[in-house]
Amino acid sequence: MRNIAIAVAILIAGATGASAQQKPAADTAKVDADIAKAFPTAPADWKSRFEQDETTKECSINENSPPKPVAEAIGKREKARIEYPADGGLMGDWQSGEKLAQSGYGLRFTDYPARQTNGGNCYACHQLTKAEVSYGTIGPTLLNYGRIRNFSEADTKAVYDKIYNAQAAYPCSNMPRFGTNKVLTIDQIKDLVALVMSPDSPVNK
């Protein structure tokens, strides 16, 4: 996490000059209109996928390196969009979490009608356990994540927040906003929190 924060800081510092001259002169209204036309077989209830909210709009225009005030506004807005379980418990079952971390199923046009619940596909981008050697590197390694942090309550909440809405802590993070965008349910997110933060989880073994 810290590495990412430093990398983001460097990116932000470095990108302001570079992206100013490289940024395309494209007309965003035309881009939006062309996107809306480019998927003519889209079912009516998929049309919302063409649209952007304020956050994705800002991240796109700024090529994921928003100026500081924009980044702060994104962080504030997205933090307010995090919902918590009614009973306040943030830890689910790490074994279910491991299954979710392995599964990339869901929301592709070949995934309908749905044959199973959506996956979190964590391994696509993160290293999590020693046993799974087929992992991606877009995100940081999460090996021993909980143990390194002494399984603290504050970090458990931070992990929940990060999975629910990554942009609250890291504006324009590449990571999907799994909770806010309704990709995963609160219970699924709790299972993933357990995978990362439970002392019994292979992530921390």
Partner: peptide, 23 residues
């Protein structure tokens, strides 16, 4: 220029753009 903007355009339930994987 439009292709450049589309490359960075995030959308859909995962907020993905081409740039998510290729930047």
């Amino acid at each position: 220029d439009e292709g450049h903007a589309i490359f960075f355009r995030r959308q859909g339930p995962h907020d993905f753009a081409c740039a998510t994987c290729h930047n």
